[in-house]
Simulated scan of single mutants.
Amino acid sequence: MRSLLSVLAAVVAVGVLSGCSTAENAAPPRQATAPTSTQQARATGDLNLAEYERYRQSANNYGKSGLFFQSPSGMFHCAIFDQPMTNYEVPIQAACMGREAATPQGEDACAKREVGNSPIPAAGVGASGSLFLCVTEPVFYGKQDALVLPYGSTLIGNGISCASSETDISCSDNFSGEYFSISRESTELSSSRATTAVPSVLGERPGTARNTLTAAGFQVKIVGGENRGKNGGQCMVATQQPAAGTNAPANSVVTLETEEIGAAAPC
C-alpha cells in the first residue's frame, strides 16, 4: 500500500509540473508600453529568464529602444522595438538586416551605389504586414554590440517572436500572424505588395525632388527648410529614406532631409 501511494504521488507531481510549464510557455499579450520585466517578455529555448534583460537597450544610435540581437554567424543583426518604426509603408515592430541576405521572390535586389554606403537587404514585420527593405544605415543595430541569439532559441517581446535556427532568422507578429524569415539562401514574407524603385533625389532642390517623387507615385515628407539656409545658401536634399533604388510600395512616404549647400548645416 505504501508503494502504491508513492507512485500516485509521483504521478500527481508530474502533472502539476507539466501544467506550470505550459503556462510559462504561453505567448505574452502585446504591451501598450515597453516591457520592464521578464514577466512581460522573455527568452525561451536555450535562454533562461535571467538573461532576457541583457538583450534590452534603452536606445540605439537612432533613438529606438527594445531588444537587440545578432545571429550566431554574425551575418544578421535584428531588433524587436518597443515602439514601431513608422517611416515605412508598414509600421515595423521587428526587423533583421544583413549584407548577404537573399532577395525575396518578386523583389529586386538592393542596387549598389558608386558613392557612399551600399544599401543593405533587410526584412521587417508589424501587425499590418511584412516588408523587404534596402537600408543604408544600421537602423536595426543596437548602440552596443548585441548579444547572440543561440540556435534553437526564441526571443519574445512586444507581441513579436523572433526565432534563431541554423537555417534562418524568423520573426512573427503573435496576433496578426504576419512574419518574415531571412537567410543567405532565401528570404520570405507573409505578404507581398506591388512596389516601385525609389528615384534618387539627393542633391536636388526640395521642390524638384518633391515633383520627381510624386510623379513616381510616392508621398513626400521634407524635414528642414526648402528655400535658403541661415548663410544664404540654397537648401538641397542631403538624405532620403527609403534610399534610392529601394523597392517601396506605391503611395508610401519618402522622407527627405535638407542641408544648406556649401555650409554642411541643416536648412
Rank of each mutant, 00 (worst) to 15 (best):
residue 1 M to D: 12
residue 2 R to M: 05
residue 5 L to Q: 12
residue 6 S to L: 13
residue 8 L to Q: 14
residue 8 L to T: 07
residue 16 V to Q: 01
residue 17 L to R: 03
residue 22 T to V: 14
residue 25 N to F: 04
residue 31 Q to Y: 08
residue 31 Q to G: 15
residue 32 A to N: 04
residue 33 T to S: 07
residue 34 A to M: 01
residue 35 P to E: 04
residue 40 Q to C: 01
residue 43 A to N: 11
residue 52 Y to N: 12
residue 53 E to I: 09
residue 56 R to A: 08
residue 59 A to N: 03
residue 59 A to T: 09
residue 59 A to F: 08
residue 65 S to V: 00
residue 66 G to T: 07
residue 67 L to I: 07
residue 69 F to H: 09
residue 69 F to E: 07
residue 70 Q to L: 06
residue 71 S to I: 04
residue 71 S to A: 13
residue 74 G to D: 03
residue 77 H to V: 05
residue 79 A to L: 14
residue 80 I to D: 06
residue 84 P to D: 09
residue 90 V to R: 09
residue 105 Q to A: 15
residue 105 Q to E: 15
residue 109 A to Q: 13
residue 112 K to Y: 11
residue 112 K to G: 05
residue 114 E to H: 02
residue 116 G to W: 03
residue 117 N to L: 08
residue 120 I to Q: 03
residue 124 G to C: 11
residue 124 G to N: 11
residue 125 V to S: 01
residue 132 F to S: 05
residue 133 L to D: 03
residue 135 V to I: 15
residue 141 Y to F: 13
residue 142 G to C: 00
residue 142 G to N: 00
residue 143 K to D: 05
residue 145 D to R: 11
residue 150 P to C: 01
residue 153 S to W: 02
residue 156 I to S: 13
residue 156 I to N: 15
residue 159 G to S: 05
residue 161 S to C: 09
residue 162 C to H: 08
residue 165 S to Y: 06
residue 167 T to C: 00
residue 168 D to N: 14
residue 171 C to F: 08
residue 174 N to M: 12
residue 176 S to R: 07
residue 176 S to M: 10
residue 179 Y to A: 14
residue 180 F to A: 06
residue 181 S to W: 08
residue 183 S to W: 05
residue 186 S to N: 13
residue 195 T to V: 15
residue 196 T to M: 13
residue 198 V to D: 02
residue 201 V to H: 09
residue 201 V to T: 12
residue 202 L to P: 11
residue 203 G to L: 09
residue 203 G to T: 11
residue 204 E to I: 04
residue 207 G to H: 11
residue 207 G to I: 04
residue 207 G to T: 13
residue 207 G to R: 13
residue 209 A to G: 10
residue 211 N to P: 00
residue 214 T to L: 06
residue 220 V to R: 10
residue 224 G to H: 08
residue 227 N to P: 00
residue 230 K to R: 15
residue 233 G to L: 00
residue 234 Q to T: 13
residue 251 N to Y: 13
residue 254 V to D: 04
residue 258 T to I: 10
residue 259 E to H: 02
residue 260 E to T: 07
residue 266 P to Q: 04
